[in-house]
Amino acid sequence: MKKVSIQFKLNGVLRQLKAAPNDTLLELLRDKLGVKSPKTGCDRGDCGTCTVFMDGRTVRACLVLAPEADGREITTLEAISKNPSPLQKEFAKRNSFQCGFCAPGIVLSATELLKKNKRPTREEIQEAIAGNLCRCTGYTPIIEAIEAVAGKRGA
C-alpha cells in the first residue's frame, strides 16, 4: 500500500512520518514513535486501553487511521506525567489500580472528565470511564479517587 506523509504534534513536538493509510494511530505511536502508554487491548475500540487525546478530546487510537491524525495535536500520558496531576497522585495514594494495564486510558478519560466538569456526580464519573475496561479492581477504588480529587478542586 502506498505510504502517505503525515505530520502531527505529539506531546508538544511536531513529528513528520510516512505511514500506510491503513496504519492506525496506535500502531504509529507504539511501533514507530516508541510511545508505549497507550496499550493494545482489543484493536476494535471496545476496551479503551489505547486512549489518547486528539485535539484535547479522548479518542481510541486503535480506531483512528494514521491520515486522520494529520495536522492534529496528540497528547499521551507521557506528557501529562512530566508534571503529575493531583488525580494521578490520588490514584497512587489509594492503590486504585492493580495490574495497571488500563491505568493510562483511565487516567486520560478521568482527566478529560474533570476538565469539562469540575464537580461530577458518581454517575457522571461511572459514565465517563465506562469505555475503559478494567478486570482487576471492580472500579470502585478508581471512582473514589476521582471523586476525592473532584471534591478537593471544588473546595
Binding site: R30, G34, K36, S37, K39, T40, T76, L77, E78, S81, P84, Q88, F91, A92, K93, N95, S96, F97, G100, F101, A103, P104, V107
Partner: peptide, 23 residues
C-alpha cells in the same frame, strides 16, 4: 498497614512496562 503500592506510581504515570512494550 495499608502501605501504598510500590508499583503504583509506575502504573499511574504509564511508566510501567508490559511485555508488548519492550523494544
Amino acid at each position: 498497614t495499608s502501605a501504598e503500592r510500590i508499583d503504583g506510581w509506575e502504573k499511574v504515570t504509564g511508566a510501567a512496562k508490559f511485555t508488548d512494550d519492550i523494544e
